[in-house]
């Protein structure tokens, strides 16, 4: 529990890291109606694609310097040589990031979705999708950020972006399925399956990657 709290305090201190992505998300969503005609039907058409892309982008920004501080002050080395499990610590770190950034963004997606589509059922479904997808994206970008640990995170984000795209495709398909009343549960389960695989593998892969950096 103390590690969770410590990670929370560390992230809370870095206001730019957790508030920045949320503000980016809000800005994109607010700017959207300004760029198209003010017709509700037109707004609805592209709304969900924009929502997923803005979640993707804000998750990309949030992982920008996830390991950088620990890398610079030697915390990562200390954790590796200490007896505590390194992958587990990474999983905790990702979880705290998700609580601080992913959850508020999911809640905001619900509000924006309700505001634009006025469809409560769809918007409730969007919360689940946003929660799952933000966790998946977060994990993937953490991997990217670990790859280019001290090389600037843009490179890492760019090379992991292609891996995140299949998730975007499934997200798009599940919204279409719900709108047309097709069975959307299997798509939701597919996403959950992806999430469970990612949660169980990414911390290990990231820990290997960071160890390779520190060797």
């Amino acid at each position: 529990m103390t590690t969770y709290y410590l990670e929370y305090l560390k992230l809370k201190k870095k206001l730019r890291s957790w508030l920045g992505p949320i503000i980016v998300f809000i800005l994109i969503m607010v700017a959207y109606p300004l760029t198209v005609e003010f017709l509700e039907k037109d707004l609805e058409k592209g709304f969900y694609s924009l929502l997923w892309i803005s979640i993707l982008l804000s998750m990309m920004f949030s992982t920008e310097d996830i390991f950088l501080e620990d890398f610079n002050d030697g915390t990562l080395e200390q954790i590796i040589i200490s007896s505590s499990s390194f992958p587990f610590m990474i999983a905790k770190k990702i979880f705290i990031y998700w609580i601080m950034i992913g959850l508020p963004i999911s809640a905001l997606s619900f509000l924006f979705s309700l505001g634009i589509t006025k469809d409560l059922n769809l918007s409730l479904f969007v919360i689940f999708l946003a929660m799952i997808s933000s966790y998946i994206f977060l994990n993937l970008f953490v991997f990217g950020s670990a790859l280019s640990l001290n090389k600037g995170s843009v490179l890492g984000a760019l090379i992991t972006m292609p891996i995140a795209l299949p998730v975007l495709i499934v997200l798009g398909k599940s919204i279409i399925a719900l709108q047309f009343g097709i069975n959307y549960l299997e798509l939701l389960l597919l996403l959950l399956g992806c999430l469970s695989i990612i949660i169980s593998t990414v911390p290990f892969i990231v820990s290997y990657v960071i160890k390779a950096h520190l060797e």
Binding site: F143, L147, P162, I163, I205, Y208, V209, H213
Partner: peptide, 17 residues
Amino acid sequence: EKADKLLSWLVIVGFVN
């Protein structure tokens, strides 16, 4: 050596595509 290791991890993860 570092580049090789990181590259291998990325190749394996990217195989999803």
